[in-house]
Design a protein around this nucleic acid. Structure first.
Lengths: 195, 195, 195, 195
DNA sequence: CATGAATGAGTATTCATTCAT
DNA sequence: AATGAATGAATACTCATTCAT
């Protein structure tokens, strides 16, 4: 891959991310993407097989980056408290998401059910996310950091709350100050809503 | 509106709900809907202006029913405790949602960004939901039932967690026992995840 | 199938036959076909799945009609001589082909190798034609009407000569008088070219 | 033309012949051709004006080689009999064709009607072939070697039978033994099919 | 009321050909 | 000479919506 090719490919991916975020996967046309990039229609197909591949690549990259920003909780003697480590993880993910609002919109609010291949890809991401969370919670329960309860339900609620908050933050529905968001999430995890 | 007309309209709405739930708004075709109903294509347009109107009506009805199942928390002397009333409200909504999985799929997981008019309609539903929740939380904070914190963020997290749990329940990703779901939600609201 | 539908379908088939004959399968566009028929583009797809289906139907029908015009040689006492029956068969096929020049062009000179599905269809027609001819020649050899020789080679040469003559006749390269064509074919079958 | 250039040109022609034979003129892409040759796309256009020119050159060369392998029948005293000369001519053409199956496929079974310019080129080849055959038959009739009859029809049938046999031979539909093919053709020319 | 035939705008994708490097 | 990135015209097919019957 020559640098030139790399650059053009990057331009197309960036344009695609913006367009997908604005219009959604179905409504976005290849014409929109090449139009924003300023290249001809055929050029798109020199870099990607089809619309779905670009989408998949964007989502894959983003999820990989999110996953990469999470550090496993260390329980060793000199390590920060688990709560501090948890807060640090939340901070990194929130920070990354606030920096890439387009990817948040794409990854979290694109329709399931529009394209079978797309569905499968999204489903596999969520499946591995759930597995990871479940294992983490299991450890937490064992060491007495996480309360008892059906982990699948806990994971479902936690992921939903987290994603919704981020979606609302990047869409402007709620304030998007990183510290505030992390505080709100921590407070929820610490004590729920009720006094 | 004659009873006959009413019945036909109902059949079309039911078919549309199933199709939308299976394929999503965009992928669902008017052909699918009339095909399932057993009427001709043109008939659809005798009852609805267009595809979007049917969708909007389904979502409107469902949201109205959800809203109708929620009773304001009463603080009077002879009333049950606020926690009991909250649990009862959660129970009614969960029960309603489990009874109408198709509507849950439609209302909670349909993509924003696919159709501008659709977006607006969904946004207005969520806006009023948020307003209602915000007011409820405000009351709760005043009487010392809800902890302090930015209500918008609390609402965002709570709604997200609630919707995700219901989506996962109707899609089979998590168990769909009403009591378990309500317990899990109450536990989250009572004490979050951490010990 | 209503009469109206039947008629429209017929119109499209007729237009398609003419267009295919003029431009060939690949160069012919659906636009050409609907343009000649005077209907909208989408209408085409109400009657046929795709371009290939129309082509296949035209070729199928024509080959079926050709096959139907051939009567097995009867050897009974009161029957005309085999030579007379052969000549009559040739006459019927030639007559049919001269009456449908478009179908002759389509059926005999459309490219193999353009579309895999198309190839298969054409190949199966030719396979059954070869089988039929081979069996006929076998009978002929047994009763002493056909000279000895590798039947596959004889069939190949005979079919090739026959088709080429018909193609040239409908394209105007050679005279297209039915009796003359039949005479020429009979003469070839009777005694070849050499004295 | 440097030897290097000549060699590169030859490589492209060889690749083109194979690709055309495999896929047909329309389905064959310039990409296929340069891909097999191992050069870049642009290089193709340094050697040929366009796809059609390559095709035309392949067909021209082949037809020229076929024509060159045919020796006029000599009637002199010491010459072999006309039948022997005819058989020798058939043998040379059959031999050449069996040695170049790709060219046979290209030359004999490429669709008319796909490309106007292509049509014209093919038509002119066939026109000169017909003229040559017609003149040859005329001589044959004058010297009593060829029976009476409309020469155009005789040529049409003979060419069609000959080409079909060769096509079937190179495609594997019939045995491709040179002697057998020549025998079958001679037998047909000598006495047709009927006893 | 109901039908279903017809419409036509809209979109992904291919590929021969050009041209800057 | 050679490269290969870029172009953009061309085309099959879908589907919401209309309307004559």
């Amino acid at each position: 891959m020559t640098p030139r090719r790399e650059k053009r490919r990057r331009e197309l991916l960036d344009a695609a991310r913006d367009i997908f975020a604005e219009k959604g996967f179905v409504a976005a046309t290849v014409d929109d993407i090449v139009g924003r990039t300023g290249v001809a229609r055929g050029t798109f197909y020199l870099y990607f097989d089809d619309k779905l591949q670009v989408f998949g690549e964007l989502v894959s990259d983003f999820f990989a980056r999110v996953a990469g920003s999470i550090r496993p909780i260390e329980l060793g003697a000199g390590a920060p408290t688990p709560r501090e480590q948890l807060r640090a993880n939340l901070g990194r993910v929130v920070s990354l998401c606030l920096a890439e609002p387009g990817n948040v919109k794409i990854a979290f609010s694109t329709a399931f059910g529009v394209d079978a291949a797309l569905d499968e890809r999204l489903a596999s991401f969520y499946a591995s996310l759930h597995t990871f969370m479940d294992e983490t919670l299991e450890t937490g329960q064992r060491i007495g950091l996480i309360r008892a309860g059906d982990r699948r339900l806990m994971v479902s609620i936690a992921i939903g709350g987290f994603e919704q908050l981020l979606q609302d933050a990047v869409s402007g529905a709620v304030p998007s100050d990183e510290a505030e968001l992390v505080d709100a999430l921590m407070a929820f995890l610490e004590s729920g809503l009720l006094v």
